[in-house]
Design a protein around this nucleic acid. Structure first.
Lengths: 329, 329
DNA sequence: TTGAAAGCGGTACCAC
DNA sequence: GTGGTACCGCTTTCAA
């Protein structure tokens, strides 16, 4: 049933029916309640697509995860999962739905292609990956976009994320304070964020007069990551006594690899993660980590996006990372 | 820019432009390539909303998670997360987008309200929760719907899920074979699935001539679950030597509670989970679990839904659960 | 092969 | 307060 038919049954014009149902405009109390009751009874609901077309609003926000084809990250990666869940929770509170798309950044225009079709009122991008420049150039033309990621000097796009350098620094400082003298950094090579974290680790070690960190490259894909780490660990000349993982997921693989090698955590070797995923507290030993406050971060992203959709000019927000000490250090 | 303006620039009618861009209908080679090239150059893309309205298709699938208000499950729950990720991966391969909504089943009509607005071509429901009858009655009128969950005798709606009774049975049998004599079942009280799993555990124990399982009620919310479990465990007269958790998430909380009580897993007490979340392999000790093959399940759900959207009548599929032995037993 | 025009199902302006 | 009607931007029949 469409509005025309419904209005006919109600004995009013489509205009009146529309106004009564959407609650906008001047319709008498009685007419309104009569029409609403009838709609309820008949199970009539206005078609959202038609409304979207007319109003030019979709009440939907796109969440896109740019996946560099090197990094085989699935949407099922725990970090994305968690983030998407938090974003959904926050968007729902604002009455928005979440359109989830995996986008393959095969050329420079993927973001244009995504936005151009007008299915969403705004977008949230999770992770800059290796698409920093694409996002940056999009930000020039497209306002309602908020990105989870770092802020570089002179950056144009609105980003929410922790101070990755500071976080890396905190992680290393904590391990040093716990008595570690030789650190390793385990993480995927790609991505601005990870580079910053590593730089923070370097800085802390230098400040303490200690040697630079051993780098253990790692995959995103859990099983591969685990194998990589085990292999690289085994090949080291001297075993580090502390490991900073670039992400909680990496730390989890690390814990597994260490357990199989018979290295006790934290007595023999200490491990600290990065992200603050809820699941990290469930690992045994519970993972010490740098908490990025993802739930709050998601809420902030959504708030900023709402303001940008409304036409305001919301600025980037930097989240202060926090050391969350648990049992793995 | 809209189609009319674009067509004007291209020097053709809107009809021709539309046909050339959508690849449907008869347009000469040259015209087509000329128009496509121009669109590329100008960055013109047809508006998806308008297309959806006209074609009555959205190329979007809704994923809804009915949340009984008793169970405070967030979309950020690891099980949902994981499932949503897998579904997204599968949908993307079919060219569909995923519209994520948290639905509060406050009355009997939530499903009608969701579907009635016509924003999606079909829906995937994750978990029957306590909404079995609502889903069942919807299935009578609405075909393109596939549900993750169990299959009861005489069930109308198309469901994909593991044989929960069999799974519970397998879990218990495994613990018994490992020498356990007093089992506990930890899980949220609600939900058909969990009841079935518990029944399976009961059956296995009875068949082995062992006493029925102690029941440890638990929350969905991780921290609360952990506290609950610790409390209930402490209050038991005699400690069980094996625990079947109704979900991997519950098992994770369990492992944590046990670690803090100083109970070694698996030597003192053995723990088996249910779901087969990828993250479960990262717990230490790595969690033995009943694998529901979620990734494959998601793929099957999507395949069935595609067939239903196409008008076919796809049947329910039961997934054979599999025992995945790791270190916690 | 191409173009003119009628919708898809609403919303919102304008007149009464 | 209510009704008539022009649009939102595209697809698709029908005619040329």
């Amino acid at each position: 049933m469409n509005l025309k038919q419904f209005a006919e049954l109600a004995g009013v014009s489509t205009a009146t029916a529309s106004r009564a149902l959407s609650g906008t405009g001047r319709v008498s109390e009685e007419t309104t309640s009569r029409i609403v009751a009838l709609a309820e009874k008949l199970g009539y609901q206005p078609n959202a697509i038609a409304r979207n077309l007319r109003t030019q609003r979709t009440m939907t926000v796109g969440v896109v995860v740019p996946m560099g084809h090197d990094a085989l990250q699935h949407l099922s990666d725990p970090f994305f999962n968690t983030m998407i869940g938090f974003l959904a929770d926050a968007l729902v509170e604002h009455g928005y739905d979440l359109l989830l798309s995996r986008v393959l950044p095969d050329d420079e225009r993927w973001l244009d292609r995504y936005i151009g079709t007008g299915r969403v009122d705004g977008i949230l991008v999770i992770g800059q990956s290796d698409q920093y420049h694409v996002i940056e150039s999009m930000a020039r033309r497209y306002r309602p976009m908020v990105v989870w990621g770092g802020q570089m000097p002179g950056q144009r796009h609105c980003a929410v994320g922790s101070d990755n350098f500071r976080g890396g620094q905190m992680a290393a400082e904590h391990l040093i304070a716990r008595g570690c003298r030789l650190l390793a950094f385990a993480g995927p090579g790609l991505g601005v964020e990870f580079g910053e974290r590593l730089a923070g680790v370097r800085a802390a070690l230098a400040a303490a007069g200690l040697p630079p960190p051993v780098e253990l490259p790692s995959h995103f894909e859990p099983d591969a990551a685990y194998r990589d780490l085990a292999k690289h660990l085994g090949a080291l000349d001297s075993m580090p006594d502390g490991i900073v993982a670039g992400a909680d997921v990496t730390a989890a693989s690390m814990l597994k690899a260490l357990a199989e090698m018979g290295c006790d955590v934290p007595s023999t070797i200490k491990v600290i993660g990065y992200d603050g995923l809820p699941i990290a507290g469930h690992l045994v030993p519970a993972l010490t980590t740098i908490d990025q406050h993802l739930r709050e971060g998601a809420r902030i992203m959504v708030d900023l996006l709402m303001r940008r959709i409304a036409g305001e000019d919301a600025p980037s927000v930097r989240i202060e990372p926090r050391l969350l000490v648990r049992q793995s250090t």
